[in-house]
Each structure stands twice: as structure tokens, then as C-alpha cells.
């Protein structure tokens, strides 16, 4: 019943989508926290309807260097899921995970000068696990079948990476609607973002499945 229009969403729809972000990112954060055996907190999810030119700003500016891991969604809903961390946080994360395995030569890469194959592969796997946690909780909440692609990774400027989901929204309108959750630890060294970016029809599917 509840149709989402990019021009007018009611508060109820915003609240429900925010709660979806809350549950999904909550699970994903827990998975991350267990992997690195350290506390990771998440902020209150934001449901944002953005002009395209605002999209690159959500993760700290268009030129901010980030690792982005993208999944295309399938099954009952279409869209994309993205896990993003800036380069410093990404290398901090791989060092936490692989620290004991890496020799000191490899530690040089933690300055944002690009990552080794091993580090990229580890990040890819981390992305895979936590996106899986996000999506499986979303799937059990809504009773919808949600499948995801293999992870696709890019290490580049945030604006360039975010152009990929933005273009998908460009096909149907002049704004992008996304569910964004920021996570991080206390000293901010592990900050990153989960972005859930369903297509417009899939927003409707999700809301309908929840009885709205």
C-alpha cells in the first residue's frame, strides 16, 4: 500500500527505514566487533534524501580517499549495499586483523599509499562478512529473500566510488534515497559507513513486507 515517492515521504516511513538501518547495522557492527575482538559503536542511522551533488559529501567530501566495497542486491529487492571506510581506518582495521601476520615492510602501507594484495583481500572478506550480517537481519525482519553479489572493491576518491550508486538513482529521478549508518570505536580510528541503497520499488517492497 505504502508507496514511496522521492518528493514526499511521511514520518512513519522515515522511522521504519531508520529502524531497518538500526537493525541491519546493529548486526553488522556486532559482527565487526567480534572479528576484531574490540568494541565498535554505531550511531543512529540516517535516512537521507539527497541531491546528487550532496551525495559525495556524506562520507567526508568527494576527494576523501576511501575503500568502498559494493554488493548488488537481488532476490525480492534490488539495489546496492556499500561498506565504506577511509584509507586510514581501513589500514587500521587490517592491522588489527592481520597485525601478527604482517612483517614490518608491509606496515608502510598503512599511510594510505595503497594496500597490498593481502590487505585488500582481508578487507574484501571483512566487507563480505559484515554486509552478510546486515542483509541477513534485514531478510529475517522483512521475510524477504535478499541475495547479494560477491563483494566488489575499489580504493579511490569517495565521490568517484559513490557515483556508481548515484547513477543508478539517476535513472529514475533527481535525488538519491539512502539509509546511512556510521560506526566507529571510541578513538575514531575505525570509523566507517554502511549504506543501504535499495531501488525505489524495493523501498516499497520493504515497507509493504512490514505491513505499512
Amino acid at each position: 500500500m505504502s508507496k514511496i515517492s522521492l518528493n514526499g515521504m511521511d514520518n512513519m516511513q522515515y522511522d521504519v527505514l531508520r529502524e531497518i538501518g538500526n537493525i541491519g547495522a546493529g548486526n553488522a557492527t556486532t559482527a565487526l566487533s567480534q572479528m576484531i575482538n574490540s568494541k565498535v559503536e554505531m550511531k543512529v542511522p540516517k535516512v537521507e534524501l539527497l541531491e546528487f551533488k550532496e551525495v559525495p559529501e556524506i562520507v567526508g567530501g568527494a576527494e576523501n580517499l576511501v575503500v568502498g566495497i559494493l554488493f548488488t542486491l537481488g532476490g525480492d529487492i534490488d539495489g546496492m549495499m556499500m561498506f565504506m571506510m577511509d584509507n586510514d581506518a581501513s589500514s587500521h582495521l587490517v592491522n588489527l586483523l592481520l597485525g601478527n601476520l604482517l612483517n614490518s615492510d608491509n606496515m608502510g602501507s598503512s599511510k594510505g599509499e595503497g594496500f597490498t594484495e593481502m590487505e585488500l583481500s582481508a578487507l574484501n572478506e571483512i566487507g563480505n562478512i559484515i554486509a552478510g550480517a546486515y542483509l541477513s537481519s534485514l531478510s529475517s525482519l522483512t521475510n524477504l529473500t535478499i541475495t547479494s553479489s560477491i563483494p566488489y572493491m575499489a580504493n579511490d576518491m569517495a565521490g568517484a566510488i559513490l557515483s556508481v550508486p548515484a547513477i543508478e538513482f539517476g535513472k529514475i529521478g533527481d535525488k538519491a534515497l539512502l539509509i546511512e549508518t556510521e560506526f566507529g570505536n571510541l578513538d575514531k580510528s575505525l570509523n566507517g559507513y554502511f549504506l543501504l541503497i535499495p531501488t525505489l520499488e524495493s523501498y516499497t517492497t520493504i515497507l509493504t513486507s512490514l505491513g505499512l
Partner: peptide
């Protein structure tokens, strides 16, 4: 001129 134009972080665009 002397103004200039810029666009940041072009990806597939």
C-alpha cells in the same frame, strides 16, 4: 577567465 571550473571525484560520470 580568471575564474576556473572544477569537479571533484569524477567516477563513471
Amino acid at each position: 577567465a580568471p575564474y576556473a571550473l572544477t569537479t571533484l571525484g569524477l567516477g563513471s560520470c
